[in-house]
Design a protein around this nucleic acid. Structure first.
Length: 509
RNA sequence: GGCGCGUUGGUCAAGGGGUUAAGACGCCUCCCUUUCACGGAGGAAUCACGGGUUCGAUUCCCGUACGUGCUACCA
């Protein structure tokens, strides 16, 4: 078996792309790259009622930001197109009809109302969700219960119908999942899923099998929520193309939110994103924040996602995409779902900020600053500042709070920390300090510190207290790198200016 | 309700018949720093429960509980 490896990500364009989706893409991508295969994206837009404008474009933007470029897709092209299922609509019907002819599927004419009433009649505490299955199908209006000429007549009249799979009675359906190993189902307990809808579109079940076959997919990765319908897919493979052609399945463990299933709400509720990038719902106007906008580096996002359900067995936690490609293996993917922990996610980002060169960070930081009305920044100066503060940022957005005072005189001074210690002597220290500064020809942190301390000793004052006050004068609060470092960076003129400002401000009390 | 899948500290997790049950995040203490971080050194905290199998089970088997997914002409 030397078929070239081909994997796919098959999203439906209905909204934001969340964590679990991106991780599925990532594992697909890593697997393809690891084994020299092809990674393709197929858009599953068979449900016309759920189509969302802009969602497909958004998905590709997210992949782009993550650095997960498909080899084939509706926008990247490829020899197995079209890559949108809506554009493949005419291809599915013949397979559905073939199944009917072979006795594996049947026409069903039940209207939505009739289905509804069947369910209502059968519904009970013991059976809260009655199925269209081996037990009920003979009570319904379909080509199994109606005489052939009646069926032919209805079809001829153009009566609406769907094609349903006829699940066999007493079969055990087994397959080997790359993650869960042997999985088995009793066919009699699975319902007769609709394969072809009344509008002529296939459902996911038919489309995924037909397209995986036509696109020569060898390994199919998807979320574990699909495991329950896998028997339908296995059966379709058996009936249509042969089990030997079926891709190897890998059902990925779910990513859970703080209280169970990860939902869009969790993001809003717990203050962390669930989508890769900002998603705006055009109907409600609601904006859901993405990891990118929250201040994540794509490298960190990829890294943390990779570690949610996989590790290489060593203590290493920080991986670049290249390292992941080299080390990823499907048999080290977990069976159990993982609860997403935003604190750990922040840590990954912090580590990536630390290990990313200031010059790479510069354009991103520039953006953050300009969003906060700090513009016209000198590039060399910016690099210097980034170098000073990047170890204290865990999100890119932290660069503003950690560095704004390098670019503008602080508007707010933490006077509460100064006033109790403030007196005439200290005031005269800072007044004299300005004069001392004017004597310094090279305004470096060493020289600043030296004259600062010399003056303190001369006036018989404690250096520590003064240093704290000086920090508040320059920064506004008790934070940031060394005070003399800051002073050197902003320069003599600005340092003096901030001392004067502060002096005035402290006088006001 | 039925069916599927799962269960090592609060979270991510290594390990897997005999171990002091790794490591990371978070939390706490201390050091560094008269700031806040970074960094360093420590600390508290785990094998869901009950039966087997075995000389010995966290590890294998069976139950139970719990969690989660599916149970749509949605994916």
């Amino acid at each position: 078996m030397n078929k070239p490896i081909r994997v796919r990500f098959a999203p439906s364009p209905t909204g934001g792309l969340h964590l679990g989706g991106v991780r599925t893409v990532l594992y697909n991508y890593l697997f393809a790259r690891r084994y020299g295969g092809r990674f393709l994206v197929r858009i599953e837009d068979t449900d016309q009622t759920r189509f969302v404008e802009g969602a497909e474009e958004y998905i590709f933007k997210c992949l782009d930001w993550c650095g997960l470029t498909p080899d084939e897709s509706p926008v990247h092209g490829g020899a197995f197109g079209p890559y949108r299922q809506s554009e493949r609509k005419p291809m599915y019907r013949k397979y559905a009809e073939q199944l009917v002819n072979d006795g594996h599927a049947y026409y069903a004419f039940d209207t939505p109302e009739q289905l509804e009433s069947m369910r209502n009649e059968l519904k009970s505490a013991q059976n809260p969700s009655p199925q269209y299955d081996g037990k009920t199908r003979m009570k319904m209006r379909n080509s199994l219960t109606m005489p052939a000429d009646e069926v032919a007549r209805l079809l001829e009249m153009g009566t609406g119908y769907v094609i349903r799979i006829k699940m066999p009675d007493n079969e055990t359906i087994r397959f080997t999942d790359m993650i869960h190993e042997e999985v088995s189902f009793d066919s009699g307990l699975v319902d007769d899923k609709v394969l072809l809808k009344a509008d002529g579109m296939p459902t996911y079940h038919l489309a995924v099998v037909v397209d995986d076959y036509l696109m020569e997919i060898t390994h199919a990765f998807r979320g574990e929520e699909w495991l329950s319908s896998a028997p339908v897919h296995v059966l379709l493979w058996k009936y249509l193309f042969g089990l030997d052609k079926m891709p190897q399945w890998a059902h990925l463990p779910l990513i859970l939110g703080p209280s169970g299933k990860l939902s869009k709400r969790d993001g809003a509720k717990y203050g962390f994103p669930v989508f890769a990038m900002n998603w705006k719902d055009n109907k409600t106007g609601e904006l859901t924040e993405g990891f990118k906008e929250k201040g994540f580096l794509p490298e960190a996002f990829i890294n943390l996602l990779a570690m949610l359900g996989w590790n290489d067995g060593t203590e290493q936690e920080l991986f670049s995409m290249q390292e992941l490609i080299e080390k990823f293996s499907i048999d080290r993917v977990h069976k159990a779902g993982a609860k997403f922990d935003f604190e750990k996610a922040r840590w990954f980002n912090q580590e990536w900020i630390k290990r990313t060169d200031a010059s790479m960070l510069a354009p991103l930081v520039k953006n953050i600053l300009s969003e906060n009305e700090i513009a016209d920044i000198d590039d060399r100066y910016l690099l210097q500042v980034i170098g000073l503060v990047k170890d204290r940022c865990s999100l890119l957005t932290d660069f503003y709070t950690q560095s704004f005072y390098f670019f503008q005189t602080p508007a707010f001074l933490d006077k509460a920390s100064v006033i109790p210690k403030w007196d005439a002597l200290k005031k005269s220290f800072f007044t004299s300090l300005k004069d001392e500064f004017s004597l310094i020809s090279h305004f470096t942190m060493i020289n600043i510190e030296e004259s600062f301390k010399k003056l303190a000793v001369t006036m018989n004052l404690k250096v520590g207290d003064l240093q704290m006050i000086y920090r508040i004068m320059l920064v506004g609060s008790k934070m940031g790198p060394g005070v003399f470092q800051i002073s050197e960076t902003i320069g003599k003129e600005e340092s003096v200016k901030r001392i004067e400002n502060a002096l005035l401000s402290f006088e006001e009390g």
